[in-house]
Amino acid sequence: MARTVAGSTDSGPLRGPGRVLDVIGFARNVRLWFAPQEIRQEGGTPDYRFSLANERTFLAWLRTALALIGGGFAVDQFLPDLRWGWRVGLALALLAAGVLCSLRAVNHWVRCERAMRRGEDLPVSRFPALLSLAVAVVAVAMVVVVLVGWEG
């Protein structure tokens, strides 16, 4: 029961000190990833169709992560005329986005699964907005770098 109370802090408001709670909540969720019996103790088992829908969302995020990683490889190989710094910088940015995306995928999956078992609202997240901004920035940087590279 104490677990339920402690675990509910990470779905609270995320302003100001919420960011710290976010990190603590993430660390707590990491333990849950490897302890399936703990998540089964909470609440009731939801309809299997909801769990499968949650699983497909997780897989879609994992594909996004794999696509970002593939994009990192592609930048490294298909833009050989770029200067080393730009090429490696863009590739590493895409690879880092892929890492964040895969970690977030499993974390969000755990949070959704737990919310469904407890009958709470599904967790909200600002990650999709942040990821789309990051992808837009990388895309603009790539356009600029390729155009400047052609002129020079």
Binding site: L32, W33, A35, Y48, E55, L62, L103, V106, W109
Partner: peptide, 11 residues
């Protein structure tokens, strides 16, 4: 449902 260990392994 998918087990957390399985999901974590994939990620």
């Amino acid at each position: 449902a998918l087990t957390p260990r399985h999901a974590a392994a994939g990620a």
